[in-house]
Design a protein around this nucleic acid. Structure first.
Length: 583
RNA sequence: CGGGACGUAGCUCAGCCUGGUAGAGCACUUGGUUUGGGACCAAGACGUCGCAGGUUCAAAUCCUGUCGUCCCGACCA
């Protein structure tokens, strides 16, 4: 390929609307251009890399027994109503109308479609297990698209769905995908690691996310270096002990706390109640019903855990400033800052408490009377707790739940997600099969996603330096960039460049020849910005000494005799390729 | 949807506070000189200053609205 015959619009300056380095490099290296917020056109170099990532995914999915299909992006809303997600996923569903005014949805994911297919086609245990996958454009009405391809309205995803006859079979399918994902990311040159994950709206029981460590990631991962425990903060737990019991009086005692509406204020003089001896009472509206959630004063509620434990779909804090929520606080008799669950909790309201409060006594909490608190409160004796759950957010430095070493937290980009779904969708969409004994059962499902376009950007986020992208060989748009410093048609640099290009191409190497009549500095800067793994410099000065320069993107220049250049590049290529073989 | 910032040439931005002539650098065109790390000189082309109202003799500049972009939050399969 000649550079002049493709389209690589590099930018010298950083576009002002790109915040993170991978987004800036996507634009500067001419991989993509923005059409509008969250929508991008892939240009030749970006598209070549995208295709390479797709190909790696295909090879590994096929190796793991996946069967490639292609489902419609445009879907009937009926199947979404049937699964119940027409409402629960409403926030991200793009809806369109046809000329007859009938509504359709643009698929944000394909559980409904594949399960409908399975319902009609998979009828016998003899047909199981099956794992269907596709690589396809997804549409999600993101509230706030950002960071280029990281969170877009339209993006490329690999989604796979497994159907098994038994729970054990489903776990085996899950394990095969988990292993395939490790191989896929390794082959992309990406350091991604699996973490335990929350299952979210999609539902299910067992889940891991594949995370790429990056400060610009949108997820917090809790991890232990000693035992390799790792979990999304939405799911993570720690090995902290429950609150220590104390001697306590016969009943709670009310005391005046005028103007005190925060944990901090109550911790100071003259009250001096440490945060870990306070009960934080939160009022939430969960699926339109008010509930009380209790956590210790020094803890933060983890809303994801709350939703996962209770199955609530729409959860928000009640807002004292919101007129619609006014009656909630009126029913309790106090405003935030003086709330508690000891007395005056309306009948029928559910009270959820964090497990760390179990057995706690001599606690202080709001009296449900503005300006008053209660002390000497015993959780079990004084509060009617509906259910106890782990509801707190893990903090840095807490003991690991597995080995008691210190937990750390870091930011990461989610590039893949594996779920064991169970029978949620197969039951709702009637994807049942007949077992050997003639009984009918819903198939046990799993679903497995990789954000293909996000993975591309994650590679850039992880593999770059001050000069630009440093592509891992397997996903580079071209593997070698041949750079003649003079492009006079019959001159030695250009003649040798063509010859070398032909030889390397014949050896199966993807070559781009920078035939532009530009000064050397421009060519060097551009090739480094775009990030080709190896550049071969053909300049009159070194050619006069009988030498050609090999400049790996991530290493020092090596001078080789002209006659040996082709063999040297092929040797480099083989060695580099070997680095990315998945284990 | 809340909070903040910003919309001026293809890109990066100045000008706005204090109203009166539309600017710089890069990119682009032509000519010349250059040619191993984003060249130099000269000439040239490129704008309804996001859009719509309003104030004013006069608006890129002040006011109102609107659309868009980016950031923080909420949300997120």
């Amino acid at each position: 390929m000649l550079w002049s015959q493709t389209f690589i619009p590099t930018l010298k300056e950083t576009p002002s609307d790109a915040e993170i380095v991978s987004h800036q490099l996507l634009l500067r290296a001419g991989l993509v251009r923005k059409l509008t917020g969250g929508l991008y056109t892939f240009l030749p170099m970006g598209l070549r890399t995208l295709r390479k990532i797709e190909q790696i995914i295909r090879e590994e999915m096929n190796r793991a027994g996946g069967i490639e299909v292609l489902m419609p992006a445009l879907q009937p809303p009926e199947i979404w109503q049937q699964s119940g997600r027409y409402e629960t996923a409403a926030g991200v569903l793009f809806k369109v109308r046809d000329s007859a005014k009938k509504e359709w949805v643009l698929g944000p994911t394909h559980e409904e479609v594949i399960t409908t297919l399975a319902a009609s086609e998979l009828n016998s245990y003899r047909q199981l297990p099956r794992n269907f996958y596709q690589i396809q454009t997804k549409f999600r009405d993101e509230i706030r698209p950002r960071f280029g391809l990281m969170r877009a309205k339209e993006f490329l995803m690999k989604d796979a769905y497994s159907f098994d006859a038994s729970d054990e079979g489903a776990m085996a399918s899950y394990g095969r995908m988990y292993d395939a994902y490790r191989r896929i990311f390794a082959r992309c040159g990406l350091q991604a690691f699996p973490v335990e994950a929350d299952t979210g709206v999609i539902g299910g029981s067992h889940s891991h996310e594949f995370m790429v460590p990056a400060e610009t990631g949108e997820n917090d991962v809790v991890y232990c270096e000693a035992c390799h425990y790792a979990a999304n903060i939405e799911k993570a737990t720690s090995g902290l002990p429950a609150t220590a019991p104390r001697e306590v009086g016969p009943e709670p005692e009310k005391f005046a706390t005028p103007g005190v509406v925060t944990i901090e204020a109550l911790a100071k003089a003259p009250y001096g109640v440490p945060a870990n001896r306070q009960i934080k009472t939160l009022v939430y509206v969960a699926d339109s019903r008010p509930v009380l959630i209790l956590v210790r004063g020094d803890d933060q509620l983890n809303e994801s855990k709350f939703m996962a434990r209770t199955g609530a779909v729409a959860v928000r804090p009640a807002d004292a400033k919101n007129a619609a929520d006014a009656e909630i606080f009126a029913a309790l008799g106090a405003l935030p800052g003086s709330l508690g669950a000891v007395r005056n909790v309306p009948a029928g309201w559910k009270v959820y408490a964090d497990a760390r409060l179990r057995g706690a006594n001599d606690m202080t909490t709001g009296a449900n009377e503005d300006g008053f608190h209660l002390k000497g409160v015993s959780m079990e004796r004084d509060i009617k707790v509906t259910e106890w759950f782990d509801l707190r957010t893990v903090k840095v430095g807490e003991p690991c739940p597995k080995c008691a070493q210190t937990l750390k937290i870091r930011r990461a980009i989610e590039v893949g997600h594996v779920f064991k779904l169970g029978t949620k969708y197969s039951e709702k969409l009637n994807a049942t099969f007949l077992a050997e004994d003639g009984s009918r059962h819903p198939a046990v499902m799993g679903c497995y996603g990789i954000g293909v376009t996000r993975t591309l950007q994650a590679v850039i986020e992880q593999c770059h330096d001050k000069d630009g992208i440093v592509w891992p060989l397997p996903v580079a748009p071209f593997q070698v960039c041949i750079t003649p410093l003079s492009v006079v048609p019959d001159g030695q640099p250009m003649t040798l460049a063509r010859q070398l290009s032909d030889e390397l191409t014949a050896a199966g190497i993807e070559v781009i020849l920078d035939d532009r009549d530009e000064r050397p500095g421009v060519k060097f800067k551009d090739s480094e910005l775009v990030g080709f793994p190896l550049r071969v410099n053909l300049g009159e000065k070194s050619l006069a000494k009988g030498e050609i320069e090999l400049k790996p993107r991530n290493g020092p220049v090596k001078l080789v005799p002209i006659a040996a250049a082709s063999a040297e590049v092929i040797a480099w290529f083989q060695a580099e390729k070997a680095k990315y073989q998945a284990a």
